[in-house]
């Protein structure tokens, strides 16, 4: 059911089912929730480069959860701002529910909700949680008859019932972020942009948020960004990986795993790892520091496991354990980003 439109990004085009490709070749600008063609390359402003997206083409279906993942500075926020109409592209075109993003922006505004990563900055600090939401319900034209119900529905789903009468300074960073998200959800728009929504959220809050989103998935298209591929793996129907404003790939998570997680992934806990060239023996995927001397490392082998063990022992490294692990989207992501 996915259709993706592209001129030059053949990697993206490969993921398009054949029946959709025929439709895409005709470039019919209709159907999907969001349709983007050769967008965007924003001009540079005087001395500083403002925006980081190059020509991108893709589309997203209604009811789809579309994850945008990339390292810091990849252009995720810029892309979401472009897709919401906050920024103008310098080329290309985009449609949302058949409305032109730029020319019909006033109509588009009724179709989209936007949660920005820094949205908590814009909360009304002297107002309570409930007053904040009521204020935005008025701005978002939610009918007065239903606004209270809409607010309570979201508040209950996100577990914020106990905070309704608290003002913003009384909230923790996580709760402020939850309120920012609630503000975007009360309008129940068909297109929802979430720019790194789970920043500052604890795992329980993350789960509550995603449970609510998944419950309402059918009626919405969700486009969300994250720099954490593990988060995207669990929830996105498709993933776009971007780096330096370029789309590296658009794919279903399972296809991404198949294509880019070839080979076995290992995980090891080691001590006394000094400054020697571990890169010669393994391809490092991730390193976590467990203590001053102990690290946890995820890697794929360049040679055999025996060679690696011999090498480590020769360097007086203490091997606490080495286990095989299931390849994850993180592995595929790192592989794609590092091989760009």
């Amino acid at each position: 059911m996915y259709s993706i439109v592209t001129n030059s990004l053949t990697k993206i085009y490969e993921t398009v089912p054949t029946n959709i490709k025929a439709h895409v070749r005709g470039m019919k600008e209709q159907g999907p929730g969001l349709w983007v063609k050769n967008v965007f390359k924003l001009r540079t402003q005087k001395m500083r480069k403002v925006v980081a997206t190059n020509a991108l083409s893709f589309s997203v279906e209604m009811g789809e959860i579309f994850g945008i993942v990339g390292p810091n500075g990849a252009g995720k926020t810029t892309l979401i701002k472009l897709l919401s109409g906050l920024l103008y592209p310098t080329s290309g075109s985009a449609k949302i529910l058949n409305f032109d993003l730029i020319n019909d922006h006033e109509k588009v505004k009724d179709k989209i909700a936007y949660v920005s990563t820094s949205g908590w900055m814009g909360l009304e600090w002297q107002l309570t949680v409930y007053e904040n939401l009521l204020f935005y319900a008025d701005l978002l034209r939610i009918p007065r008859k239903t606004s209270k119900t809409a607010i309570y529905k979201v508040i209950n789903a996100l577990g914020m019932e106990g905070y309704l009468k608290k003002t913003i300074p009384e909230l923790s960073a996580g709760m402020r972020q939850m309120l920012t998200i609630a503000r975007g959800l009360i309008a129940d728009r068909p297109i929802l942009y979430l720019d790194e929504p789970t920043t500052s959220l604890d795992p329980f809050a993350r789960k509550r948020l995603w449970d609510f989103i998944l419950e309402n998935k059918k009626s919405r298209t969700i486009i969300f960004s994250s720099h954490d591929p593990r988060e995207i793996e669990g929830y996105a129907d498709r993933i776009m990986i971007i780096k330096n404003g370029k789309s590296l790939i658009v794919s279903k998570p399972e296809d991404l795993l198949k294509k880019f997680s070839i080979g076995q992934i290992y995980q090891a806990e080691l001590s006394n790892v000094n400054d020697f060239d571990l890169d010669k023996m393994v391809k490092i995927i991730d390193i976590f520091s467990l203590s001053d001397k102990r690290i946890k490392i995820r890697f794929s082998l360049k040679g055999s496991l025996n060679d690696l063990v011999t090498f480590l022992l020769s360097k007086n490294v203490v091997i606490h354990n080495i286990t095989r692990t299931r390849p994850s989207i993180s592995d595929a992501y790192l592989r794609i980003v590092n091989h760009d």
Binding site: K81, S84, G85, L86, E106, K109, D110, I112, Y114, S116, S118, G119, M121, G122, Y136, L139, L140, R141, R183
Partner: peptide, 13 residues
Amino acid sequence: WNGTMDLYMLSPL
């Protein structure tokens, strides 16, 4: 500076 311009600009106002 409060960071609310984007919300206002995306509200149907």
